[in-house]
């Protein structure tokens, strides 16, 4: 019988080596043998993606490799996710995500989305070329804790400033994340955004940090 550790290793390495078939096989096998799906996702698929992130930072992997690794990860996630019990799934939060109007690229957005999917968040993906008001509407409709916006071109990033203002006016507790090629930390600060995802790998970490901060703020408010 294949041990849990062996399967975790196969999932992890399958993601790193963008081997979709290996990931699918290992994921199916894990379900068949009754191993906990959430553990398979986190310590297998996500652990692999973490290594991919490191390879990207070290300039060993570039965007084409990362995209292929992401395909491998989703191949496993599609099999494993339905088997995660509801109470375990860790769906603690929702995120509204999209590329802003004028931006028809969504590579960055999809990588950030993947990390939310892995972490088990409920993702409301608005797609690309999304009119600004749509982010505000969707946040109000879903009461999502996080709104994540991406712009790959310099020429679209100014639009994000408006959305932040609109959302913060209606609901000051929403955390806003910005990401995309031309957005730097300085720009994010300038726009009044709460988090900035420099790379897809940082996005979820940033989001979790932001929510922790918002919770703290609310607790302090309640205590007073």
């Amino acid at each position: 019988m294949t041990t849990k550790e062996e399967l975790l290793k196969q999932l992890k390495e399958g993601v790193i080596n963008y081997n979709e078939e290996q990931v699918k096989e290992a994921a199916s096998k894990a379900i068949e043998l009754g191993y906990p799906a959430l553990e398979m996702i986190m310590d297998g698929l996500a652990a692999g993606m973490e290594v991919v992130g490191e390879l990207y930072e070290r300039n060993e992997y570039f965007v084409p490799e990362v995209l292929m690794c992401a395909d491998a990860l989703y191949a496993g996630l599609d099999i494993l996710r339905p088997h995660v019990p509801k109470q375990e799934s860790g769906v603690v939060a929702q995120v509204v995500i999209g590329s802003v109007q004028g931006d028809v690229h969504d590579i960055g957005k999809n990588l950030v989305k993947m990390m939310f999917d892995v972490a088990g968040w409920q993702v409301h993906d608005l797609g690309r070329d999304v009119p600004l008001e749509k982010f505000v509407e969707e946040q109000l409709r879903t009461d999502a804790e996080v709104v994540a916006m991406s712009a790959m071109m310099t020429t679209t990033m100014l639009g994000m400033k408006k959305v932040i203002k609109m959302i913060k006016e209606k609901n000051p507790n929403v955390a806003i994340m910005l990401g995309g090629a031309p957005v730097t930390k300085d720009v994010a600060k300038l726009f009044g955004a709460d988090g900035y995802a420099e790379s897809a790998g940082n996005a979820v970490q940033e989001a979790i940090k932001m929510i922790a901060r918002l919770r703290e703020m609310q607790q302090t408010k309640a205590a007073n």
Binding site: G102, V104, M153, K162
Partner: peptide
């Protein structure tokens, strides 16, 4: 119809 400066794109 947008008030913003948006360059043409291929949707």
């Amino acid at each position: 119809n947008s008030e913003d400066i948006l360059y043409p794109t291929i949707p």
